[in-house]
Design a binder for these strands. Structure first.
Lengths: 331, 331
DNA sequence: CTGTTAGCGCGTTCAT
DNA sequence: ATGAACGCGCTAACAG
């Protein structure tokens, strides 16, 4: 492939002038035309690696997510992309798979490639280390919660309140033994949603104590297993609050396998699922603005790219309880 | 961040020796130990951009997909990742969003970064241009079908037969006016599945003619609209074969909105959905080995990386009809 | 406004 | 087995 010297020669100018044309610096119209003609002639495309080496920056935005099969993250990715495009940034997705090791590998890539910014849903509060990125001036935005290694811009949904609302709703419907199936202990989101669940119990009238809690993995299989254990236990729940939509699918499956269906056992889930009103009965859930979270995160990257040492800020987006049939107790 | 000269100085050797240690060339054990110590001491990580510039290659594998919200592609991505990891390659996902322009932008990135390989689900048979990648010796593997611009390794599922099987099954169940909701005309997969649908009609006994065909966009909303139009038409179908799972969700929704439910109107879909046995009645579908398609594609990249000018090969993986309740006509 | 020059950090000759 | 020197392709600094 042609390089910048070939173009310079063909256009009868210096390489610096070609570079200026490429980067929009001021050049005489005449020379500019000759350069552009030569570029087209030779099919020249600037080499991004060389440019990156020289400029110590690139125009790709890294998005490191915990689970590519989780619709929350894919919706979020669309939000990121739509904003990134307005700034001519490409977005590359990296699937860390909830594995701090894989995550570290991708953080290395981001660092080494001097990415324009990194949006990350930390696999772990404690292990995720973004200090090197920060040190290099690469904007980092966290989803849900800033890792402990450094205070960074954060975008989250109001998980605690959402979970509180869903649980209170189950309580209001008259369910008495409400269990919670939540995500990994390392996940901030899982912890927040569990907190909302517990607060709803404490603040109910009369206060309720010691609801059953199962920790799972935010995936379909994990939700299935957790629900199966609950249902097969000595004192099974009469309702369940599941802290994400994939686990909710698994939980429903476990119920179906035992010929149980909501709302005999009440079910409310956290997060959106396009199939929530296809199942019968339809699934009550807490809407979570995944797309907007992505947009906000990308906007924060862009903002910080302009002025590097702004104070880290946190954006919290509201959730909304959507009551459908799986949580309406028949009277 | 420390560079190779800093390490060399700290270890009392030349930068070349450091480079050799990093790349596994033969070095005296004594010197090697000093270099490794210095690396650890300084927290040195080789700069991938500089390395890429010099080596004209990188260790990231690009995966360019048509729609990140489509579970088929996310399952495929996991297959790619699992194989790539065995060769110490990182995988970055790029969402072309069915847009040839975005796709071209990502192909440019892949080219410029000298990616180790590119796996692409072409947005268009005609517009997708991979010749530059090929020219640079970058292995390219296509999903579903090779773009016209160059003959490359291809991995696909046996879509035509899968669609044939699903349609024949509907015919056998006694449905008489079976419609097809398929994807964009530019999509090879959509075309193949439609072909299988049509062949099943031709080869039925007696042969059937002129079944209704709707072209949509492989997304939930598109499936909804297509089904709504079919149902509201003068001569609505009594069954429908939907060529992917997202559109199937939309189609079911359109039916529910009209108080219609399978199997009064039979439904069979192409592709897997973890919610297929959560909906009532459960959804019959053609299993498509998305994960294995990803694995095969990644394996082809690795194979071609070894020996560049192998003849392009095509791998076709079988599909399998899974009959559930949405297509079993009540007698 | 333009051209010359140096260097981003590494891998790789070519000598030794 | 090792080190010195060069160049991958580009852009920033300087001089004109």
């Amino acid at each position: 492939m042609a390089n910048i010297y070939d173009v310079a020669k063909a256009a009868g100018v210096s390489p610096a002038t070609v570079s200026r044309v490429l980067n929009g610096a001021r050049v005489t119209p005449d020379r500019e035309a000759r350069v552009r003609a030569a570029c087209a002639e030779l099919g020249f495309k600037p080499n991004r690696v060389a440019r990156g080496l020289r400029r110590q920056s690139s125009d790709v935005l890294g998005l490191i997510i915990a689970d590519i099969e989780n619709p929350f993250f894919t919706a979020l990715a669309r939000g990121v992309e739509d904003v990134a495009r307005t700034a001519a940034l490409s977005v590359v997705l990296c699937n860390a798979d909830d594995d701090p090791e894989k995550e570290a590998a991708y953080l290395d890539v981001a660092l080494a490639e001097h990415m324009a910014g990194v949006i990350i849903s930390p696999a772990s509060m404690t292990e995720t280390d973004v200090t090197q990125l920060i040190g290099k001036g690469i904007p980092v935005v966290a989803i849900d919660h800033s890792p402990e290694s450094a205070q960074v811009d954060t975008v989250a949904s109001d998980d605690e309140r959402g979970a509180y609302a869903a649980t209170s709703h189950l309580i209001d419907e008259g369910y008495r033994r409400i269990a919670c199936i939540t995500g990994p202990r390392e996940s901030w989101a899982a912890v927040q949603r569990l907190r909302g669940f517990l607060r709803a119990h404490r603040e109910s009238d009369p206060p309720r104590r010691r609801p059953a809690v199962k920790y799972a993995d935010f995936r379909v299989r994990g939700g299935y297993r957790a629900m199966a254990e609950l249902l097969d236990s000595a004192n099974p729940p009469d309702a369940v609050m599941v802290t994400n939509n994939l686990m909710a699918a698994g939980a429903l499956e476990a119920m179906y396998d035992r010929e149980l269906r909501p709302p005999a056992i009440g079910v409310a889930a956290f997060g959106d699922a396009f199939w929530s009103h296809l199942v019968r009965p339809s699934l009550s859930s807490v809407h979570q603005p995944a797309y907007d979270i992505g947009r906000s995160a990308a906007e924060l990257v862009l903002k910080r790219r302009g002025n590097p040492d702004l104070d880290p800020q946190t954006v919290v987006l509201p959730t909304r309880l959507e009551i459908r049939d799986s949580s309406r107790r028949p009277s």
